[in-house]
């Protein structure tokens, strides 16, 4: 048993062939999940029980079960249901990429909606009252005051969730997708060199994580420019 550097050099390019798929999963389910999260958050803070209740149940179920189980339900379970096979959505659920995207979206949406809600609840009540006293209607207060302030407050936690999502994309390999992790697993099965292959892949993920953190810090600085005392 030894650490084979030439094996890493030949395996890395192969694994990086999957980086496109990793990023497709990350970006697609990240964007769709954010949209879902906004809807869920608005339902939760609507003050109407018939909206907030379903949202709460949804969030509870998706945060209370493993993402891997959710992926398997979508991938193995859904095709068994006739109304899905007969619907226009079938092409999505027939395709492992579609299933992975749907499961990751549904999952991250639940987490992010809670993060956004935390941001909205963190907005200073006095600021909203000032808007009210100036005659801004509820919609205007939400658009011009709550949204920008809440976005700034929610950003650090949101960044962490994007990183969680990146790590979850690796689970797509369990439903036959050849993302970076999927390729690595195939290579390990062929070469039986888990150390070389998995460690070098871990480093690739860490680099991506680092870049996401940098990007988030930059957005945070830009959104939070009003929180700095010196001009």
């Amino acid at each position: 048993m030894s650490f084979d550097v030439s094996l890493i050099l030949s395996a890395l390019p192969k694994m990086l062939m999957g980086i496109g798929l990793t990023f497709q999963l990350l970006i697609l389910s990240g964007v769709l999940g954010l949209m879902l999260a906004i809807v869920l958050m608005l339902m939760r803070i609507s003050g109407k029980w018939y909206l907030s209740w379903p949202a709460q149940v949804y969030i509870y179920v998706f945060r209370g079960t493993p993402i891997l189980v959710q992926i398997f339900i979508v991938y193995y379970g859904f095709p068994q249901l006739d109304f899905i096979r007969d619907s226009f959505l079938w092409p999505i659920f027939r395709d492992p990429f579609g299933c992975a995207t749907v499961a990751l979206t549904l999952n991250t949406g639940a987490y992010v909606s809670e993060i956004l809600r935390g941001g909205v609840l963190g907005v200073d009540r006095g600021v909203l009252e000032a808007g009210e006293a100036l005659g801004l209607n509820p919609r205007q207060r939400f658009t011009y005051l709550t949204t920008p302030i809440a976005a700034r407050l929610a950003l650090p936690a949101y960044g962490n969730d994007v990183i969680s999502l990146l790590k979850s994309t690796a689970l797509a390999s369990t439903i036959t997708l050849a993302d970076m992790t999927g390729i690595a697993r195939t290579l390990v099965a062929q070469t039986y060199a888990p150390y070389e292959i998995f460690i070098s892949l871990a480093i690739v993920y860490m680099i991506i994580t680092f870049l996401i953190q940098k990007l988030m810090a930059r957005i945070e600085r830009w959104l939070g420019r009003y929180t700095v005392r010196t001009s």
Partner: peptide, 21 residues
């Protein structure tokens, strides 16, 4: 109501300026 409110100016103890503007 907002037509009434804009005729009534209010100043708060804790200023309540919009921090992000």
């Amino acid at each position: 109501l907002n037509a009434v409110r804009r005729e009534v100016g209010m100043v708060f103890q804790s200023f309540n300026l919009f921090p992000h503007m």
